[in-house]
């Protein structure tokens, strides 16, 4: 899957999970940039990613992610 397609899908997931009207994707987007992104909504975000892309994330993968770009990198590796 093209990276641009992954980022488009991820943006849709984030808009839904974090209840946003719109979101301009950047690789360095993190919880610090989105008010509704907290420890609880992060769990829903991770599970939504799992369901959308069809794989399971480990706890260490979930805990190590620093920003959305790292999530895209991880999705690329998982789908490769």
């Amino acid at each position: 899957m093209e990276r641009s397609a992954i980022t488009a899908q991820l943006t849709e997931i984030m808009i839904d999970v974090f209840d946003l009207d719109e979101l301009e994707y950047r690789d360095d987007l993190s919880a610090a940039d989105i008010e509704e992104w907290d420890s609880l909504s992060n769990i829903r975000f991770m599970v939504a990613v799992e369901k959308e892309f069809g794989f399971r994330l480990s706890n260490s993968e979930i805990e190590s992610l620093k920003n959305v770009g790292e999530m895209v990198d991880l999705i690329e590796r998982k789908l490769a």
Partner: peptide, 8 residues
């Protein structure tokens, strides 16, 4: 949080 992950 572990239970939340399982639940969702």
């Amino acid at each position: 949080r572990e239970e939340e992950l399982f639940f969702h």
